[in-house]
């Protein structure tokens, strides 16, 4: 039995594609067979973030049109065993795929993989319906900004009407300092408003950007906090109980340690 998870947000630029790449890779690192499907047809990005752009021959539209077999279009990632990508088409219109066709592809992939990660385009129109059609579960990505939270709220409502109940929430790009100073929405506030389960928080981390540019998902570099955050999300998807990571920077200097000791924090 495979699980298809759609990664969506409503708003653009909150980190859907980056999250798809990292969560997919992290699940594969846990020994699962994972296929990432880029459904942002016409604006494909997932292959770039994964560094697989130069190996694409066929894409999802070719599969739908019967120009190639599903297995021919899959790009297998050589760094992580069990990880594959079904790329989107770059030069086609997004209306070439109907929700029924995308559901069929997801069902077919379900026979080959344990997890199917569906990277949803921004917006709530046709592309969203195509991405959601075959999904069993959903992860809603948001950032601690009012606009992103508002769009996430809208998307949760739409997921519910598409019969995907209890989506899980990922809060991306948290800046601990700004949250502490009250300049950024805090996690509790967002979770309370959206009223769905939180599955992970990802701190804002510059290495995520540089790694995406290099075509390497951050989870492959175990040294950053964002990497750990994405691995934790993958473990929670697999059913492990992992406590939320602390966003506080561990004090390293002598003074801050002493201050910590005295204040008892």
């Amino acid at each position: 039995m495979s699980t298809a998870i759609v990664i969506t947000s409503g708003k653009g630029g909150v980190g859907k594609t980056t999250s798809s790449a990292n969560i997919g890779t992290a699940l594969a690192l846990q020994g699962k067979k994972v296929c990432m499907v880029d459904l942002d047809i016409g604006l494909r990005n997932l292959d770039i973030v994964m560094g697989l752009e130069n190996r694409i021959v066929f894409d999802i539209v070719d599969v739908v049109n019967g120009e190639c077999e599903l297995s021919q279009a899959l790009v297998h990632d050589k760094r992580v065993p069990g990880l594959a990508l079904l790329p989107a088409a770059q030069h086609r219109d997004k209306f070439v795929i109907t929700p029924e066709q995308s559901k069929q592809i997801v069902d077919n992939l379900g026979e080959l993989f344990d997890f199917i990660i569906l990277d949803c385009p921004a917006g709530i129109e046709h592309g969203f319906r195509v991405a959601v059609a075959g999904a069993h579960q959903a992860l809603v990505i948001t950032t601690p900004e009012n606009a992103a939270v508002r769009d996430a709220d809208r998307v949760i409502g739409m997921l519910e009407s598409a019969n995907i109940m209890s989506p899980k929430l990922v809060i991306n790009r948290i800046r601990p300092k700004m949250v502490r100073s009250g300049d950024m929405l805090d996690i509790d506030e967002i979770v309370q408003l959206l009223g769905i389960d939180l599955i992970g928080i990802v701190p804002d981390d510059e290495t995520v950007i540089s790694n995406a540019n290099k075509g390497e998902p951050t989870v492959l570099k175990p040294d950053s906090k964002a990497s750990l955050a994405y691995r934790n999300i993958a473990r929670r998807i697999l059913g492990d109980t992992v406590p939320l990571m602390s966003l506080e920077d561990e004090p390293t200097g002598l003074w801050s340690r002493m201050r910590r000791l005295i204040s008892g924090r």
Binding site: R154, I156, G157, M158
Partner: peptide, 12 residues
């Protein structure tokens, strides 16, 4: 008199 149970989300 109507009773609606559930969250009224953005856009609804």
């Amino acid at each position: 008199q109507n009773i609606f149970k559930g969250t009224v989300r953005a856009g609804q």
